[in-house]
Design a protein around this nucleic acid. Structure first.
Lengths: 209, 209
DNA sequence: GTATGTGAAGTAATTCACAGCT
DNA sequence: AGCTGTGAATTACTTCACATAC
């Protein structure tokens, strides 16, 4: 079963919505209701869910509890994941303190920086290690997910270390395109790019008016 | 000229790459070189750039300086944008301290929170205002871009206030799908979703092996 | 010769619309 | 009656391939 990124993104949204519905003791939910809640089309929701098996009941909808269980399993949320974070600047610290990660089973268990003032310090309960120790530390802890929250100038080097350490997935916050072999699952969160989308939108909007 | 989001994202990448090339005193660049640097196809790059006019010179490539100027204008990077930030928790503080925004002309000039301990305090040079003042403050400052960095439970309400205040673009960091009229340019940065993509990837990968 | 601009072909994602199940 | 599952149609995005321009 090969799920594309856009589908996985929607599954993430469904699973969150479902836990909400479950809390509200809702037993079943129809694709039309999910469409209303998410803003996606109802057919799309049925298509997405149908990829995971025949989960729906005609005339009734989907069983909230069951669907949530299936989605959680498919997304790998029924287990714990170890994560390495590189860079404890403003953004890195914020990520480390973000409670949402642990809630979903993502545990940042190793943190690295190259700033001597930070190395050895306790940061949200984790001791910051020298980035020079990254390869060994990440490899021996068998960490498969890495987060890059360092300045752009260092990001490519950090990525190379993570690769060497055997990491399979990298979330990059540095505003540049890292080059990595394509078997690595690389995702970029580029905040400036998001704002540039807005400025482009507003610029062209005004031009039209 | 209607540019889709994927295209705007690529234009953002090009413009950054070009400023790098300009610093290195590179005069011209070909679509093949840009393809090598970005990982996109060369035809795609030519298609993207061609949307902005006939900017290339056959047999030579694109003039770095000129192309950069055109891209900056299209993306609206040749002017200043006022931004409102709602929520000064871990993430909000990190965004406020992030130097990349100001560099690109995005100035966070108003900050809001509902925490009495934060209201009135100076945060990176800006006084935090009560979220109750948001509508008036944002409207009178004519701010068109808003960033939501509050917990999920409050995000929809904050979005409604921003809408009321006349904001046209909203960047949402809360892990839920906000409902807004479609003329608002809403973009979501969902960190948990990114990690869920990884856990899904790793789960299915292991299953295959 | 080298690199652009661009129709045509190919691929992916979404929406439509309805047969068939409960 | 109500809602799913799904081929068919549509739309969006990407890649190919080559005539054209420098």
């Amino acid at each position: 079963m090969k799920l594309s990124n856009v589908i996985i993104s929607r599954l993430s949204i469904y699973v969150r919505l479902l836990s909400e519905l479950e809390e509200r003791r809702k037993e079943t939910v129809s694709s039309a209701e999910l469409a209303e809640l998410t803003g996606f089309g109802d057919a799309q929701i049925r298509k997405d869910l149908n990829l995971l098996g025949q989960l729906g009941i005609s005339g009734t909808g989907y069983d909230v509890k069951h669907l949530q269980k299936v989605l959680s399993r498919v997304l790998g949320l029924d287990r714990q994941w170890k994560v390495a974070l590189v860079g404890v600047g403003n953004l890195g610290s914020a990520l480390l303190a973000y409670p949402g990660f642990k809630q979903q089973g993502f545990n940042i268990i190793a943190v690295f920086d190259n700033d001597l003032r930070k190395i050895g310090k306790n940061w949200e309960g984790i001791v910051v290690q020298d980035v020079g120790e990254l390869v060994n530390a990440v490899r021996s802890a068998k960490i498969r997910i890495g987060i890059i929250a360092v300045p752009a100038s260092e990001a490519q080097r950090v990525a190379a270390s993570l690769l060497k350490a055997g990491v399979e997935c990298i979330l990059n916050f540095a505003p540049l395109r890292i080059k990595l072999p394509k078997e690595i699952n690389l995702r970029n969160v580029d905040l400036t790019m998001e704002l540039e989308n807005f400025s482009c939108f507003l610029t062209n909007k005004s031009r039209r008016e």
